[in-house]
Every structure is written in C-alpha cells, then in structure tokens.
Design a protein around this nucleic acid. Sequence first.
RNA 1: GGGAGUUUAGCUCAGCUGGUUCAGAGCAUCUGCCUUACAAGCAGAGGGUCACUGGUUCGAACCCAGUAACUCCCA
Length: 879
Amino acid sequence: MSIAKTYSPTAAEEKWYSYWLQHNFFRSVPDHREPYTIVIPPPNVTGVLHMGHMLNNTIQDVLIRRARMKGKNACWVPGTDHASIATEAKVVAMLKERGINKKDLTREEFLSYAWEWKEKYGGIILEQLKKLGASCDWERTKFTMDEGMSESVIDYFVHLHKKGWIYRGVRMVNWDPQSKTAVSDEEVNRKEVNQKLYYINYKVAGENSHLTIATTRPETIMADAAICINPNDERYTHLHGKSVFIPLINREIPVILDEYVTMDFGTGCLKVTPAHDLNDYELGQKHKLPIIDILNDDATLNEKAQILVGEDRFIARKKIAVLLEEAGALEKTEDYTSQIGYSERTNAAIEPKLSMQWFCKMPELAKPALAYVLNGDVKLIPEKFINTYRHWMENVRDWNISRQLWWGQQIPAYYLPNGEFVVAKTKEEALAEAHKIDASLTIDQLTQDEDVLDTWFSSGLWPISVFDGVRNPDNAEINYYYPTNDLVTAPEILFFWVARMIMAGHELRETKPFTNVYLTGIVRDKLGRKMSKSLGNSPDPLDLIAKYGADGVRVGMLLCSPAGNDLMFDEKYCEQGSGFANKIWNAFKLVKGWEIDESIAPKNGVAIEWFASRFSQALVEIDSDFAQYRLSEALMTTYKLVWDDFCAWYLEMVKPAYQQGVEKQKIDAETFNATVSFFEDILKVLHPYMPFLTEELWHDELFGTRTELDCCIVAQLPAIGKINTQLVAEIEIVQQVVTQIRNTRNSNQLSPKEALPLAVKANSTIDYNLYEPIIKQLGNVTELTKVNDAITGANSFIAGTDEFFVSLNIEIDVIAERERLEKERDYLIGFLKSVNAKLGNERFMANAKPEIIENELKKKADAEARLKIVEDNLRGLAG
RNA sequence: GGGAGUUUAGCUCAGCUGGUUCAGAGCAUCUGCCUUACAAGCAGAGGGUCACUGGUUCGAACCCAGUAACUCCCA
C-alpha cells in the first residue's frame, strides 16, 4: 500500500466519527467502573457554532477522551437550552415574514410555531459539534423544555415557594418596550450616547422665585414626586421645607433633603421620579414618595402624564422642550454624554419600569453556595475567580425570575377571582389549594400566571435534571453520575449559571453539582477584539475544520488557550496544528517503510532505553499538567516529545542508513518492534487532542491486526515506566556534542555532507564507547578517538566537562577562536565570582537550605573545571 | 464610583507558595541546506533593564508599598 505524501483529514474524520458512533464508544451506562461525568453548558437553540464553542467543547472532549482512556466510565451529556428571549424573538421574526402577528395568536398557537422553529433549527449546533469530534453520549441529548426537564423546573419552583423563598413584588426592572418584557441586567448593553441636559425652572410655592433642575429626560417631569437637595448645600437652605410646582401641569411637589444628591452636578437640585429611574425609586422608597408611572408598556405616555398622552417617549421629549420654552420654563440646554442601556435582543433603549415580577430570595441560597467554593469543595480554575465569586455572592440581590414571554416554563401560580393566588404543580392541585381559601371555587375560575420563568432558572438545574434527579431524586443514574466531575464554561456566566447550579445542587441534593469548574477565556482576534458576528472578525469554525482538519483546529485552539485568560486567536495556530498532524503522518511513513532483516544484530539498545525514559518523563509531566488543568502545557509537552525527542532524535538515531538498491530499508527486529510499540503509545497520548489522525493510524497493519472494537478511542493510556535518569543526562551531553559538531560545520561553511573526525578528552565518567554509534550517525562523524591531551590546531568545544576536538582540513581562525575562548573565560570568571560571593557570605551559609548550598558548591566545581579547560585551550592557542 | 485581574523576546504564553549555568517554550525572524519520512521539512543562530519607582532579604521576574497602562465585573 502506498502512502500519501501528506495527511488528508476529511475522509478520516467522516469515517471514524461514524465508526465510533456505530460501535457505541460514546455511550455510557452506569456500571462498576468509576464514573467521570461532564454536562455540556447547553448552547442556546438559536445559536450556531462560534469560536467560543469550539474552544469550550474541544477542552471538554479532551478531558472526556482522556478519562475514557484511563478506564473511567466517561459520560458527556449534550443538550441545548431554550433561551426564552432570543428564541421568542426569532419566532416572532419568522411569523412576521409569514405575515403573522404574534398578537393575533393564542399562547398555544404561538407555542406550536415555536416548537416548529425549534425542531427545524434547534439541533444545528449539536450537529456542528460532531464535526469537531465531540464524543458526547448523544442518546442522552436533553433540551431544557423537554417534558421531564420542564416538570423538574416546575417542581423546583414549587419547592422554593413552599420554603417561602419565592415572592411577588413590584420592582424596577429593565423594560424592553419593543418586546414588552423585562430583561435581565446581563441582557442590557450600555453605550455612551450624546444627549442634551435640559435646565428647567420650577416655581417655588408662595414665592415669586424658582429653582432650576437639570435633567436628560424632560418628558418625565410629569412623574416627578419631589425635588431633592443636599442638606449641606448652602445655596439652597432657603428652600428647606418648601414646595414647588411642576411646569406645564402645575402639580405641587415637596422639596426634600438627602445627602445622596451631588452638589456639583447640574444645579444641585435633583428631580425625583420614582417610577422611571432606579436611583429615584430607592430615594422615593426612603422618603415615602408616591409613585407616578406615566408610561405605557410600549413607552408611550399615558393619561397620568396629563399632557402629550399617547406620544412616544422620544417624541414627547422633543415636544415638551418646545412647550417648556414657550412657557418660559426652559432655562437652557447643554450637550451631555451619558450611558444608556439598550436591549441586547431588540436594540431598543431600555426603560426602567416598575412592574409586578416574581423574585427568588437569594441570601439563603447564596450563603451555602459560597461556602462550597470557599472551602474548596468546588474548585474554580484558575483560582483568581474565587474573589470575584465571593464578591458577588456576598452582595447578591434577589433574582427576578419572571419574563413576560410565552416560550418557557409558565409560572405555576394560579389566581383566584379575588386576586389571591396559589402555587401548585398542576391546575388540579392548585384547585385543591384554592379550596382552602374558598371551597366553592371551580377549576375554570382559576387563571394561571401569564409569565414564564427565566431560562437560567431551568439551566440552573441542568446537572441534576439531565439525570432526572429532581423528579426522582434516588434514581440509579443520578446516584451514579452525580456530582459530576468537571464543568467547562466561560467566566462571564459564573454567577448567572455556575452559582445557580451550586445553589440548586445544595438545595435539592445537599451536594455540589461538580468538583472542578474550568473557566475558559474569551476568544478574541489577534487585535484583541472579542470575536463577534457584528464585527465580522470571527472565522467560521466549519471552514477552519475544512481547511486545517478537526485535529488541526483542536490543536490550534489549545495551543493558545491558557485557563481563564482570553486568547488571541490566530489561524496560524491551526496551521501549526495541521503541520503537527502532517509531521506525525510522515514519521509514520518512515517507520512503515522499514522491513525487518533478522540477520542484522540489534544495535540500538541505548536509543531505545533512552526514548523509553524520555517517554515516561513526559507522561509524568503530562499527568501533572492535567491534574492542574494546564491543557495547553500538556499539549506542548506532547508536541515536543513527538517532534523533538521522537522524530528529531530517536528516529534519526535508529533509522537505517540509506541502502542502495533496496526499496524497503532493512532494520533489526528489536529496533523495529520497539519503534512500533513507541509509536502506538504516542498515538494513545495524542488521541485526546487529535482523535481522528490517531484512530486512522491505529488501524494500520503496521500495528498488526485489530479486532472490531480495538480502537484508539478506548485504548488505555500507557503506564509510566522506568526512567534511567543517568542515561537521559548523558544523552543530553551527547546531544550537545552533536549540535556542536553541526555548529562547527555551519560556522566554517562546510556542507552537512562533509564527514569529520572527532576526538574526545573525557574528564567525566561518561563512557563514550556507548554513544559512539549515535554521535557518528547524527553528527556525520567518521571516527571518534579518545585522547588524553588537547589537540592543538583543531577546533574545540566543551560539552559538560568533556573536551572535543574537530580537525578540519582548513586553517582555523586563531584570532576568532581566541576571542571565543576569552569570552567564555570572562563569563566563567564572572560566574565564579558570584558563586564565591554567595559561598563567602556568612549569612547565606547560615540561612540557606543545605541542598542549596550543595548546589552552589557543585556549580563552583563545574565552573572551575570548565575554566581550566578554557584556559588550557587558550595557552595551546598561544603556543 | 466600587471590586477583580493583567503587564516577561516581534507575537501568544510558561516560570508550580524567593535559591540549578534562570531569564524559558512555541510561533515569527535571520543564515545554510530540495541530505530518499516530512520544504507543512532539516541543521544552526540572533532576540528580553521581567511595565515603572522604592522597600524587605545574604539573595527578587517571584514577597510588600506606590505609580502607570490595559482588560473584565458590578453600579
């Protein structure tokens, strides 16, 4: 079989992904093994795969594949969340295209359209994940509005309500007048906007004078409940206890005192409008001011405004400015910039609005959830997020859990005709509850609350509800898989999602939902801008996969992804990834081209033992990297093991010299078998990062015949073997020797093909006979002679404490050689000086640990030995 | 305004609770090679006052204080 010159990933990807699926390698069911569980952060059904998903899911897949290869029962649960606001917006848009207005539909009709939309588009992102190689147990795919999942949400609501932790109340919310729902703080984008500051005069009651306030929202003056001044403001002491008239409508409002008012902003007089500003609302509560709401749900003025009724807020602003001007109440206007919130979904300017909402009390839930993180039961990686988490959990406000939408779990609260309500799982149960209030009620007299629950309220249950642990808290699955092991997510949802899962976990099961939370950074472009659709600076992940292969993209993502820090993504990393795949492919080609010749005596024992040691050293490092979730370091360790140790050194050491006229290069059986076995182990170590290439090679006949289920994906990772540290250290010197010979050639403009003789004056205990074949092969050395004295007139170098001499057929440049040696001598003298200074320092000798002093002594001895060699050489040069 | 974080080579990052010849890696750059696995390659080389200023210490990239720049979160 001839092998292609370069690796082409596409065919391998399709072939092996379906092979894995066919043979159920992703499937997990509880058994006797130790479980290893990850629940996916459910992507939004409206979403398509972006670079953030790529990163996040690559990490999860690496973790899950590694766990599988360590013999754990690995279970990765996939799914999506219903994303109330985003999805409802998409559905409304779809209906609009079809000429249907949401207002004309009943709730049931709308929901059937929404489900239609979800069935059509909601699974796209999961299909895309398959291209990446994600080894999720697809049979477990969940959606937050699946029947059982929704029922769990309702159960949880009822549970919390019974505990008295859910209540209804009027609150200032972020109102999106376009979609006519409250949105959460995280769905509001703040932008700097150029505005005008209007200075408006209010007549003081009983006097022929006025005060002036400054506001950006003159259209809200009709909702004013007071004017507030700072009691320490000496300009206004005469106004204490007075009242003023609102211009145009002449309503009388009091002047109140509060230190909240900044004296040097505007005029120092603040109009207080409790219904239309959060800070004013709080001030109003404090001073028991009336609340006058002059806006409708669509942000037009209502009859309480008395004037401009029915006008949109922005039009009203322009008109009222004119009216004020005409009335002589407008002192002046000024340009002013301030932050305005816009709805993430509709881009409408957010209106602070008082409305009746459902809330969940947070302090009781937050306190234990904080403890899990502080006492280390739940580990945040990196740890720096603990502070952020604590800060938030200690200052948490009650959570607005209602949304004025239809797509989601409808709040299970039922109103009686008299306005009272009961909370129950079903309408029937609600009726039973209602009968305690009024025994004569019929089921038709109950009406369910219109609102649905915040999506986070359901995703907060995710690690429990995917195993049906809310409805059936003692089922076999939840008992086996929960708590899960690792969660991989973005820091920006640490509070909204992670914290709420910990709360729910504690509340429902009295345990954490996961042990480790690995927080990834934001994927930015190389200019540091967040990748986004609107900027158009994000590559399409599927295009990247087509271009570089899934393995290449996976490696590329991880090469630039330190935990918890943002990553500056550049396609070049993917290029490096696919280059790596190609390197492995070619190494494979080399080994594949060998043929065993039994007549050749084994001669690579040293190389084999050395690489086995290096391999084990790498395994130790990789284990420790994974234990600390340093995935990109573990990858780099693997990368260097394969590229440097295996390809650049080991294969070069053992590869048969070119044999003329022989199509297949001949090699001894011992070397061949050892190399094939190394290669197989390398495939295993690489598999979590590069699943497709490794699986493809795994099945090559080079490794013998495989049974149907003998796949790399389920192979067990190699065990850490013996490490011959002395051998590793000595080969390091040998590598220096080889490099120096190459360097000598290079600096003397000699061709690499030119074989050279080498002599060694060994001062160390290294037995160069052992390494002679390696030095000859890698350094292109004709002979290695052992000498007792320096060879004059030859180029020399030092490796370790041993001296080497290369006799060239050309005159050596004495001046350059002397310069080089003198430079080295000066460095060594300086170095010795600093070491001796330490050793001569009484306080160092008294304070430093013994091993450190020992080290300094060794440094001194080594340096002295080298210095002696350098000085001898210098003398030789002079003579 | 409050809180958190970052600052090490041209770029992206390590540097694991001060002490190896400690200032590192990968990429990029430069030089030389189309050497029968790989030019997506091979062999070499050059890059850094560890943001700045002080302090603690026998010893600081690392600990402390302050300054500056940038980023994120909350208001």
